[in-house]
Computed example of a mutant assay.
Amino acid sequence: MGRKPDIIRTVVLIFAVGLVVTGFTSLQASDDEPTASETETVIVSAVRN
Rank of each mutant, 00 (worst) to 15 (best):
M1S: 11
M1Y: 13
M1R: 09
G2L: 09
G2F: 08
G2Y: 07
R3E: 10
R3N: 09
K4D: 03
K4M: 12
P5V: 01
D6C: 12
I7Y: 02
I8H: 02
I8R: 01
I8D: 01
I8V: 15
R9S: 13
R9Y: 07
T10R: 07
V11W: 00
V11H: 01
V12T: 14
V12A: 10
V12G: 01
I14E: 03
F15N: 02
F15W: 15
A16R: 03
A16S: 10
A16V: 10
V17T: 08
G18V: 11
G18W: 01
L19G: 07
L19P: 00
V20R: 00
V21G: 01
T22R: 07
T22G: 07
G23E: 01
G23Q: 04
G23R: 03
F24E: 04
F24N: 03
T25L: 14
T25Y: 08
T25N: 06
S26Q: 10
L27V: 05
L27W: 07
L27R: 00
L27T: 08
Q28A: 11
Q28N: 10
Q28L: 14
A29M: 05
S30W: 13
S30N: 09
D31Q: 09
D31F: 12
D32G: 01
D32S: 08
D32T: 05
D32Q: 12
P34H: 10
P34M: 15
P34F: 05
P34L: 13
P34A: 13
T35V: 13
A36Q: 15
S37P: 00
S37N: 14
S37W: 07
S37I: 15
S37C: 10
E38A: 15
E38F: 13
E38G: 07
T39I: 15
T39D: 11
E40H: 08
E40T: 04
T41Y: 06
T41I: 13
T41E: 04
V42A: 05
I43D: 04
I43Q: 02
I43W: 05
V44F: 09
V44A: 15
S45A: 15
S45M: 15
S45G: 09
S45L: 14
S45N: 12
A46T: 06
V47E: 05
V47L: 14
R48V: 12
N49S: 10
N49D: 14
N49V: 10
N49P: 01
